[in-house]
Design a protein around this nucleic acid. Structure first.
Length: 507
RNA sequence: GGCCCCGUAGCUCAGCGGAAGAGCGGCGGACUUCGAAUCCGCGUGCGGAGGUUCGACUCCUCCCGGGGCCA
């Protein structure tokens, strides 16, 4: 469904005889929208970009939507749009309702996002929470874009780490200290005070933390169960034996190196974590997912090509496998770097982080920056419930609109202009809202959820500016401005939802 | 040694082929008016050198610096 910007692009493309992409100039002196098509066309048509620009500008002026068009700089065609375009654009946004900016996807996919997947040897840390925040936002973006998405948590319930964990709890139960190589946190003592296997209890606690963090998993996959099916798949793999161990010849399928699947007898002869990966990948693809997305911390970058390599080795399209890597998290407090160790007093667990800064700020700050970026979160700033904190800046815009709408009562909202000519702040806000479908689609495609908070701040910014310059209620343009409020509130609510933050009616 | 990520305003970072941005910090203004958790004003900064391009913060190569993983 082409929106008002896309329609204008299509008309201009006809006039130019080439695809026109409109962009929003930073400088208001450069019009509402601009295109560089004249510069792109100049070399192939062997004409000067300014001549081509002049020609397009003259034709563009004939369009109803265009008030004025002029050539600037090296050959940009800058466009000032007519009031009617803003009314139409706003009307479409309002009519689209809560679905504005979303799917349907051109090619809908069934996608599995596997995320967090931390071993249940302790509570979820802030580092794992970043995994979840990014993974869940990407999942939300994909679903919004029209894909079918499921979230899965994969955990190791059988390996050496788990044995150490259980042994640590057992030791405390016997009144001893956990072994040197074991786990020593307070949570070990808490688990020791309860009956039975500590793993399910730990897992329940992890699930509760993540639910509180607003991440809901559709399914949980266990390494121990997958491992039992290893014998089915081993013969299908390209393997060889070396020094008693079974290796996958993954380097021939795009991986950086070959990987041990079964340890040599003198090493215990047990399957490795990589062996379970094989079964798990097949399991994912055979469950009918078109795409398996792995969200992995940067410490796993060494295995980023492994998953596609085994897909290729087993005859699956490696393009169905995708790894999303994200960098580490550092926490600071008043500029001082906090230790990410598990020592007492430092915020390292997600629950503590949420206690201190709130769920909304926790979600926001963990998804705020690109996955490629190592992030530093100032706990004090994140915890501050004030104008300094961008989360509340955006939420405040939403709540402020809710307030206006409460005061408006039954008053009519309508994108019809009547005789109203939208002023600069109104036009900026409409254009900002008109950006949303592209922002959302690009964020989904690029797996870059950080674009959403960035955009939401701009929306809030444009709204607050509009609010300060123009009355909504009891103004000549009340119906139009109320409609603008409705559209803005909808986009803000959607943005906040995409990053797992609440959109409050009151603050 | 191999590989990955990052060097953009004092600080934390967006932008990733088209006319340089936000927040924090700092300074100065705006509340009998729909919510001041708001708004307005003050900033020459893309680590360096080549290359590709009409055009490079954006793509390629090398170098320097920071972080990380593996060995």
């Amino acid at each position: 469904m082409p929106d008002s910007v896309a329609r204008l692009e299509a008309r201009l493309s006809e006039l130019a005889g080439a695809p026109v992409e409109l962009e929003r100039p930073n400088d208001p002196g450069h019009g509402d929208y601009a295109t560089n098509v004249a510069m792109q066309l100049a070399p192939v048509q062997r004409r000067s970009p300014r001549d081509l620009g002049e020609e397009l500008a003259a034709k563009a002026m004939e369009l109803d939507e265009v008030d004025r068009a002029e050539v600037a700089g090296p050959g940009f065609v800058n466009l000032w749009l007519a009031p009617g375009w803003f009314g139409e654009a706003l009307g479409e946004i309002v009519d689209a309702g809560t679905g504005y900016g979303g799917g349907p996807a051109e090619r809908p996919e069934k996608v599995q996002v596997e995320m967090v997947s931390a071993n249940p040897t302790g509570p979820i840390t802030v580092a794992s929470a970043r995994n979840g925040a990014i993974g869940d936002s990407v999942a939300r973006l994909l679903a919004f874009a029209g894909h079918e998405v499921e979230r899965e948590y994969y955990y190791n319930d059988a390996g050496a780490q788990m044995e150490r964990f259980r042994a640590s709890v057992e030791a405390v139960r016997r009144g001893e200290e956990p072994p040197e190589e074991g786990y020593h946190g307070d949570y070990v003592r808490e688990l020791a005070a309860r009956e039975g296997d500590p793993v399910p209890a730990m897992l329940a606690r992890i699930e509760a933390s993540l639910e509180r963090f607003r991440i809901h998993f559709d399914s949980w996959a266990k390494q121990s169960e997958l491992e039992t099916r290893l014998d089915e798949f081993l013969p299908r793999l390209d393997t060889y034996e070396q020094e008693g161990a079974v290796w996958a010849r993954s380097s021939s399928y795009g991986d950086d190196e070959d990987r041990v699947l079964i340890r040599s007898p003198d090493q215990g002869g047990a399957p490795t974590y990589r062996a379970a990966d094989v079964v798990y990948l097949v399991d994912k693809l055979e469950r009918g997912f078109d795409r398996a997305l792995y969200v992995l911390g940067a410490d796993h970058h060494g295995t980023r090509k492994w998953y596609a390599a085994i897909a290729r080795m087993l005859g699956y399209d490696p393009g169905r496998v995708e790894v999303l890597l994200y960098q580490l998290v550092h926490l600071t407090r008043g500029g001082e770097q906090a230790k990410m160790s598990k020592r007492r007093g430092d915020v390292v667990f997600l629950d503590e982080f949420m206690d201190e800064v709130g769920v909304d700020a926790a979600r926001w700050f963990l998804v705020n920056r690109g996955p490629d970026q190592t992030i530093e979160i100032d706990v004090d700033l994140a915890a501050e419930r004030s104008e300094k904190n961008p989360v509340y800046y955006v939420q405040y815009a939403h709540a402020r609109i809710a307030g206006i709408r409460r005061n408006a009562g039954e008053a009519e909202a309508s994108a019809e202009l009547g005789g109203h000519r939208p002023e600069a702040e109104e036009r900026d806000l409409v254009k900002r809202l008109a950006d949303f479908p592209r922002i959302a689609a690009e964020a989904a495609e690029r797996r870059g959820p950080q674009a959403i908070p960035t955009y939401a701040i701009r929306v809030a910014d444009d709204f607050h500016r509009f609010y300060h310059h123009h009355r909504v209620l009891e103004s000549e343009a009340q119906a139009f401005r109320l409609s603008l409020c409705v559209a803005t509130q909808g986009v803000l609510a959607r943005c906040l939802d995409l990053v797992g933050v609440e959109a409050p009616e009151r603050m």
